[in-house]
Each structure stands twice: as structure tokens, then as C-alpha cells.
């Protein structure tokens, strides 16, 4: 079981690092947003897996039974709202991308900074 737990954590770290890698190595702004989403989702999975109890059931109370083990409801509440807030902030980011495309004609980060720095061309 120890290995299983570590396997879970390692996959979360792997996903987080994949998102981080996309964020710092790709210059396309939409790709960067996708990377941020992957990063964000890895944190979600991490929280939810912290609340899991082996052999537990979803935290919906069962009538008249005392021995049921429920998984921890608190991370569920936090992540439930975080997902909806996440898509809202993604929408704002995409709106910014649309405006950048209209203003600069490109969404590649290096070209945008080149234009901002007034490299003569």
C-alpha cells in the first residue's frame, strides 16, 4: 500500500511538472493556458486524493447505519468551487488572448515582446 500511495503522489507531481513545462517552454499563449489548466487539475487531484479513505464511500449519509466509513467531504467542497472559478478565470484569460491577437496579430509570446521592445524590422 505504501507503494500505491507514492505512485499516486508521483503521478500528481508528474502532471504538475508537465503543466509547468508547457507554461515555461511554449510561447503560444493558448498552449500556456492549457498548461496552466493541467497544473491546476493536478492540484485538484492531489486534494481529492488526500480526502480518500480506503474502503470508504462518498460522503452522502446512509440512513440507519453506523459503521459506514465516509471519505472526507472538506476537500470536495473546496475543489468543487475551485473548478468553477477555474473555468471563469480561463475565460478571462482567453478573452485577453483574443484581444492580444487583434492588437498584435499574433499570439506567440516572443513576437509580442519583440514588438513591445521595438526591435526595428
Amino acid at each position: 500500500m505504501r507503494i500505491l500511495g507514492l505512485y499516486n503522489y508521483w503521478i500528481f507531481i508528474f502532471l504538475m511538472m508537465v503543466g509547468f513545462y508547457i507554461l515555461i517552454s511554449r510561447r503560444n499563449l493558448v498552449k500556456k493556458i492549457l498548461g496552466l489548466n493541467i497544473f491546476q487539475t493536478s492540484v485538484f487531484i492531489f486534494y481529492i486524493s488526500m480526502g480518500k479513505i480506503t474502503g470508504g464511500t462518498p460522503p452522502i449519509l446512509v440512513e440507519g447505519s453506523e459503521e459506514v466509513i465516509y471519505s472526507n467531504p472538506l476537500p470536495h467542497v473546496l475543489i468543487l468551487t475551485a473548478i468553477v472559478v477555474g473555468v471563469s478565470t480561463t475565460a478571462v484569460a482567453l478573452a485577453l488572448v483574443v484581444r492580444i491577437k487583434e492588437a498584435y496579430g499574433t499570439i506567440e509570446g516572443d513576437e509580442i515582446s519583440a514588438m513591445d521592445n521595438q526591435i526595428p524590422f
Binding site: F44, G51, H76, L80, I83
Partner: peptide, 14 residues
């Protein structure tokens, strides 16, 4: 992982 509410939200939103 027993988070049915969260799964619901993720499927609809994500």
C-alpha cells in the same frame, strides 16, 4: 476517489 460531486462538476465544466 469518492468525490462524486466534484466529478460531476469536472465533467460538466472541464
Amino acid at each position: 476517489m469518492d468525490a462524486v460531486d466534484v466529478a460531476f462538476t469536472e465533467a460538466a465544466v472541464g
